[in-house]
Amino acid sequence: MQTLGKGDGGEIAFESREGEGSRFWFRLPLIEASGERAEKVDFIPMELQFCHVLLVEDNPINQQVAKGLMESLGLRVTLANNGSEALLLLTNQHEPFDLVLMDMQMPVLDGVETTRRWRACEQGRRLPIVAMTANVMPEDHQRCFDSGMEGVITKPFTRASLLQDLSKYLANRHARTADDSAPALGDRTMHLASVPDASVRPVPLLNTSVLKELQASLSLNAIERLYLQFFQRLPARFSELNRAIEAQNFATVQHEAHALKGAAAALGCQALSMLAAHCESLAKRRYDTKLPEAILALIASGEPSQAAVISRLDISLPISRPLL
């Protein structure tokens, strides 16, 4: 027997006999973990390693967050900024994708229409397409299923929830064909909830779980760049919302509030996200008497949210001009 290494209670060695072969072995000291500690250990199934995911998302912040989370799980990620780009990649990509994560609302071509067009021309293996959306209403999720998507992931998501969802579609990725029927409605996970009326109850400034996920998945420099990009863009978004409500342009209010809702949720700015969702809901229903107050509440949460992020993450966020 020959010992190759020894230390800290562990040992690695081998035995070899001519004409018979060799036997390698090692011994490691293991510490029994409590149930609470064991639940926090990441386990990434081998079948997910190096799977190729097409991420279709128009918001740069959401792109970077989702891409960072997936790459931390061992996935390879290709980006498309809208449905039109996604269809080109799906048609021309020499190496096939294993799964598509599809945002619902995008310029040029949205996620629902993109999925319909792909399903109409798809051949061979049926490609799993999963929606990513901050919309929580059942009818929004049903639109995804009706277009041919397999499931819905509600933003914001964590590495753990993302791993759980993606595992369902990637574990047997080579076994399905385009002729396979979509899962029955009873097999689909529907996230049923209502848009909270954030104007009538307190909302936490931060979702600390999301912040922890970002810290676990991205470098400090990457995190600083994300928040800097977000908070530097925030005053312009607020100004656009003010101009839109003054002009009674409900479509613009809905669009801006939706974009802000998604980006804020991806970065754990819970108050901003929920208040933006409230503005989006009011604009969709054309509640012009309630919108000005809701937008003021949204704007007022900007500076406290920024201060909370700086305090929690201990990062520097120089802002060139004050929030409105």
Rank of each mutant, 00 (worst) to 15 (best):
F43R: 10
F97T: 02
K40I: 02
L313T: 09
Q93H: 09
T158K: 13
E303P: 04
V41W: 14
S84R: 14
F230S: 02
G148V: 10
R143K: 12
F50N: 15
S209D: 14
I44E: 00
D288A: 14
V65G: 06
E224L: 07
P196N: 07
G268T: 09
R176M: 13
H258L: 10
S34H: 08
G9W: 07
Q248V: 09
F14V: 05
R286D: 12
R126Y: 04
Y169K: 08
M70H: 05
A266G: 04
I245C: 04
N135H: 14
L267Q: 05
I61R: 14
E11T: 09
A120L: 02
L313K: 09
Q229D: 08
K67T: 11
V203C: 08
V195F: 02
S72R: 15
R117F: 05
L234K: 00
V100A: 03
G262P: 00
P45D: 10
A184R: 13
L90T: 03
R125G: 10
P304Y: 09
S72E: 14
S217A: 12
P45Q: 12
L90Y: 03
L88H: 03
A257M: 01
S311F: 03
A171F: 15
A198S: 11
Q248D: 05
N221S: 15
L220E: 09
T177G: 07
G262E: 02
R321C: 06
K290H: 11
F145P: 00
D187Q: 13
E213A: 07
Q270M: 06
V200G: 14
K261C: 01
A277T: 01
C279K: 00
D187W: 07
F230D: 01
C51Q: 07
C144E: 04
A86C: 05
C144K: 00
A33Q: 12
R143C: 03
L282W: 09
S311N: 13
E256T: 15
A216I: 01
R321P: 02
S301Y: 00
L185I: 11
F14R: 06
A66C: 08
P196A: 11
S16V: 05
W25G: 13
D103V: 06
G262I: 01
Q105R: 04
K155Q: 11
L192E: 10
F238E: 03
A182N: 11
H141V: 13
V112L: 06
P196F: 08
S209N: 11
E39R: 14
D165H: 11
P45N: 07
S16I: 06
A216S: 10
E256I: 15
A120D: 04
M104Y: 05
K67D: 08
N92Q: 13
A222D: 15
L185P: 01
R285D: 11
K40L: 03
A66L: 11
L313P: 10
R173E: 05
L205A: 13
F231K: 05
R159P: 10
D180K: 06
L317W: 01
L4Q: 13
L317H: 00
T91R: 15
D8P: 08
I61S: 09
H141R: 14
S311K: 14
V309Y: 00
S209F: 09
P45S: 10
A265L: 07
E150C: 15
L166G: 00
P138F: 01
L234M: 07
L205F: 07
F43Q: 07
N81G: 12
G302P: 00
E85L: 03
L75W: 07
S34T: 15
R119V: 03
R125C: 08
V65C: 07
